[in-house]
Amino acid sequence: MGKNFSAPLERTARLLDLVPYIHAHQGIALKDLAAVFEVSNAQMVNDLTTLWMCGLPGYTPLELMDLDFESGYVSISNAPTLAKPRSVTFDEGVALILGLDLLRASIPVDRIDLLEKIDFLSARISTIINLSSTFSVIAPINQGVSAAIDQALSSRCTLEIEYHSVYRDEVTERVVFPIEIVEIDGQQYLSSYCYSASDFRQFKLDRIQSAVVTHEIKTIPKDSSKTEKINSRLKVLKPNRQIAERFSKSDLKAGSEFVFQTYSQQWLERSILSSGDGVVLITPPEIRASIAQMAQSMLDRYKDE
């Protein structure tokens, strides 16, 4: 990340960080230490041998660090100057500050003690890395939802959720069996079996409005997939960013056609309507007709009044 140090510098940094780590973990197994610092055992022995030669000016046994690792377990003494960990770098500080910001949203609101600690730590690290600007991460979901999902996932039980479906434009209550949290194109989804739909569904985390663990033991029916894919063909009339993002097409040209697959007829109809004069649906013909009809009835109302 950021800077790529040359090999000797990277090794210098590692040696400086090794001393406080061993200090805090006296007697750690050599192979564990190598794993923590992501180097081979041989490299770790090399590193420790080099450290052994370092110390305060004078460089007699009195001033040199005392390292013991021949037994396969590592301990250190006589290294007071380097015993404390180095300060955090700018990137490390930023990672912590943004992480704390995200963490803030997962703390129950009545834990004022923890929230205050987070503010304190964030301010402290900002001072250390000399940061006066603002970074903020807004957690995708609220604390209650997140806690319920966690509990359901770890205890393998069902959840009752209120979900805002943008395709159907409704908020529905559903009972789901959560399987895992997946990330698709940078967005997080709860992958679940939905008993209301009798099928597997992915729920976008930030559209889950509430979630309650039901403690009901339910099973996922076998052979439960009944959804059919819709194959559609579209023609671009006026390319714009919204169309490009909605249909995940990076190179839109006026007059070009492309094929698009979806599971939801409603999503397709609404997407075409909302693209206005930007795209035309060519096939399937029944959805094309339904779009024409929807647009006509909307138009009638505007013409009437």
Partner: peptide
Amino acid sequence: LPTSAHKVN
């Protein structure tokens, strides 16, 4: 603390 749902994108 619940953390599994809170990963930075």
